[in-house]
């Protein structure tokens, strides 16, 4: 077998190595020389500058010759780029090793300062790089788009759980909070609140005044509850307060009294002053073996109804009929 002349080798295989029968490098292609940089290749032992990492056990010129035609993985010097190669025997008993950059090595190819001219015209390495760049462009665009959609989703979700008039949570937002509390081990209380006298203000002063009154009510509720308490507006003049980590009846009764007092302060609506109050009913998670938010709300609502029946401006605790404790029913103080 004859070896192509050097110019032909350099054009077809710009990363080749030609070695003598002992494995000493005779010449290399121009691109391999460029990648090697300062590192002198000619005259050196091929396997010491281009050790074969796979398949294992190729340590001598004879091993290399025996691996003719097989795919080899090599590295150019310490920390150099990973290369794939194939060896063929030449007519003079020498070896011709053709090399290409491995796929992982392409991600660091910019450090090698190569251009399309450094590859054989038939080599698809530049095309591979083109596709890799297109892929990374598209994946960064996809990541950006996903982040933008995720932002929009979070905003939409927050809006879906918010009452636009008062910016309090709506029923949906409340359900999410209760579902979370139900999963937790800590006790909590749910207070239903219905305004007394709201309809009269709405009828007398109009819807705009009614809306202003609801906004003022929301702000007062936030003012007299704790920072971690959750205030929601679930209907026209119906509010719900959730008290995480709280099941002490005396504390809850105090807060209920403060809420009623705060809501009874007159509200200035333009040239008018409105006076309202509120009735409240509370259910405690500790009264249930397995607290179910829907049932707690229904029970708190029943207690609220009892408060209304009892003369309004009052707070009533739900009284478990078959509670796990034999605690005596407690009624809140009158508002």
């Amino acid at each position: 077998m004859t070896v192509l002349d050097r110019a032909a080798r350099d054009t077809l295989m710009p990363m080749h190595v030609l070695a003598d029968p002992d494995g000493r490098i005779l010449s290399t292609g121009p691109t391999l020389a460029r990648i090697a940089g300062e590192m002198q290749l000619a005259g050196r032992d091929l396997l010491s500058v281009l050790p074969v990492s796979r398949p294992a056990g190729i340590v001598s010129a004879a091993d290399l010759r025996a691996a003719s035609g097989r795919l080899l993985w090599l590295r150019l010097g310490l920390g150099g780029p990973e290369l794939r190669g194939v060896v063929v025997e030449t007519g003079e008993g020498g070896m011709l090793l053709d090399l290409a950059l491995s796929l992982p090595a392409l991600s660091g190819i910019d450090a090698l300062g190569l251009s399309a001219d450094d590859f054989a015209p038939t080599d698809r390495t530049p095309d591979t790089l083109y596709l890799l760049e297109a892929k990374s462009l598209l994946s960064s665009e996809a990541a950006r788009l996903i982040a933008r959609i995720e932002d929009a989703r979070v905003t939409a979700e927050a809006q879906a759980g918010t009452d636009p008039l008062t910016s309090l949570r709506n029923r949906r937002g409340l359900d999410a909070v209760l579902a979370r509390l139900r999963e937790g081990a800590a006790p909590f209380a749910v207070t239903m609140l219905d305004l007394d006298g709201f309809k009269a203000v709405n009828d007398r002063l109009g819807h705009a005044a009614g809306d202003a009154l609801l906004v003022e009510t929301a702000s007062r509720l936030l003012g007299v509850t704790r920072g971690d308490d959750i205030v929601a507006r679930t209907g026209g003049d119906e509010f719900v307060v959730v008290f995480p980590d709280l099941a002490a009846r005396d504390t809850l009764a105090d807060i209920a009294a403060r809420i009623i007092a705060a809501l009874e302060l007159p509200v200035v609506l333009g040239d008018d002053r409105a006076r309202i109050s509120a009735s409240l009913g509370t259910a405690l998670s500790t009264d249930y073996v397995l607290p179910d938010p829907a049932r707690m709300i229904a029970d708190a609502d029943r207690a609220l109804y009892a408060a209304k029946e009892g003369g309004r401006a009052r707070h009533v605790f739900h009284t478990p009929r078959h509670g796990r404790s034999a605690r005596k029913p407690v009624e809140g103080p009158d508002g």
Binding site: L106, S107, G108, I109, D110, L112, G113, L114, S115, A116, D118, T125, P126, L129, L132, E133, S136, L137, S140
Partner: peptide, 13 residues
Amino acid sequence: DFALGGGLRGAAR
């Protein structure tokens, strides 16, 4: 300037 692979490192920007 046009180095092959130059668009791969900064691609995450």
